[in-house]
Design a protein around this nucleic acid. Structure first.
Ligand code: SF4
Ligand code: SF4
Lengths: 143, 143
DNA sequence: TAAATTTGGGACAAATTAGTCTTAATTTAA
DNA sequence: TTAAATTAAGACTAATTTGTCCCAAATTTA
C-alpha cells in the first residue's frame, strides 16, 4: 500500500535531511540533497518550487544558494507538506472511490476506514521535521 | 489518500454486487455488472480474468454465461481480492518507500505506520462479501 | 448447422505520474 | 565585468495505470 506519491516522499526525505543538518542561516543546495539522497535533481527542484510557492521554504540562486526552511523544523509538521503536495482533501476520500455516499448511512467499512484515515492524519499532524531529524541524528533512521 | 487501485475497487464493487444478488447457481453476466455499476466492460472483463486464474471465480461463455463466485460469499474476504490484485506484499511497505530499513531501529513513524497497515489488514481480513452484500440489501450502502 | 451471446486475450490509446534535458534568470566572487 | 554556481521554468520523454477495440473461442438455442 502506497499512501504518498513519489514527489511527496522525496520532499519529506529531503526536508528531513535539511532539518537534520540544522543549519541556521545557510542555504542547502538542491544538488547536495539530490546527491546525498539519490533523488533526481530536476524532479526535486520542481517539487520544491511548489513548496516554495506555498511559503514552506525559501530559495536563493547563485553560489551558496539553495533552499532553507522558512520556519523552525519543530514548527513544520508532516501534514503541512502532505497538504501542499497531495491536496487538502487527502484524508477525505472513500475507500471505494465513490463520491461520498457515507455518513448518514455508512457502509460496513466506512467507520473503520474513517478511523484509519483519522489515525494517519493525527500522526502527520503531530510529527514534526525536528522530531524526525532527531531520529536521523541519533542513528535511528537513515534516509 | 487512495489505498487501492481502480482495478481493485472495480472488482470489489462488482463482487459485492454479485454477492448481493445471491444467485446460487446462476452466472451473472459481466455486461450486466458493468451496466449496473457503470464500469468499463472490457476493463472489468480483464481484471476478472485475473481473479479467475486465481480460482476466486469461475466463468462461463455463451448465452446465460457470466461469472460466479467459487466459494460462498461468507467465505470470501476483502483481503483475498486485495492479495490477488495488489500483491501479497501490499501491507508490507515503508511509508517513505525505502527498502525496509526498519524493525531493528525503527524510525519515529515506523511503528505508527505499522499499526495503520495492521488495522487495515485486520479489517480486510474480517470483512466478507456477505457482510457487505447484507449492507447493500438493507439499503445501508449503494454501489 | 447456423446464429446469437458471452467471455478470452491481445493490441492499442489515453491519462496520469515520474523523470530528463535545455535554456533563462539570478547571484556570488574572482 | 566576467565566469561560475545555482534555482526557475517549461518542453520533452518514459513508465505505469486506466480504458478501448477487435477478433477468436466457447456455449446455447433456434
Ligand atoms: S459509506 Fe462506504 S462506500 Fe460510502 S463513502 Fe463511506 S466508505 Fe465509501
Ligand atoms: S523505519 Fe521508517 S523509514 Fe524505515 S522502513 Fe520503517 S517506516 Fe520506513
Amino acid at each position: 500500500m502506497r499512501a504518498l506519491s513519489k514527489a511527496t516522499i522525496y520532499c519529506l526525505r529531503a526536508l528531513m535531511y535539511v532539518a537534520s543538518k540544522n543549519e541556521q542561516n545557510n542555504y542547502v543546495s538542491i544538488g547536495e540533497i539530490s546527491d546525498e539522497l539519490d533523488i533526481s535533481f530536476h524532479f526535486l527542484t520542481k517539487t520544491f518550487q511548489t513548496l516554495n510557492q506555498h511559503g514552506l521554504l525559501e530559495s536563493h540562486r547563485g553560489p551558496h544558494g539553495g533552499i532553507i526552511l522558512k520556519k523552525a523544523s519543530k514548527d513544520i509538521y508532516l501534514i503541512d507538506i502532505v497538504h501542499i503536495l497531495e491536496g487538502a482533501d487527502f484524508f477525505d476520500k472513500c475507500l471505494l472511490g465513490l463520491p461520498g455516499c457515507g455518513e448518514r448511512e455508512p457502509c460496513p467499512v466506512h467507520n473503520f476506514w474513517k478511523n484509519v484515515k483519522g489515525n494517519l492524519q493525527l500522526e502527520f499532524r503531530k510529527t514534526s521535521l525536528q522530531h524526525l531529524a532527531k531520529a536521523i541524528n541519533t542513528g535511528k533512521m537513515r534516509l
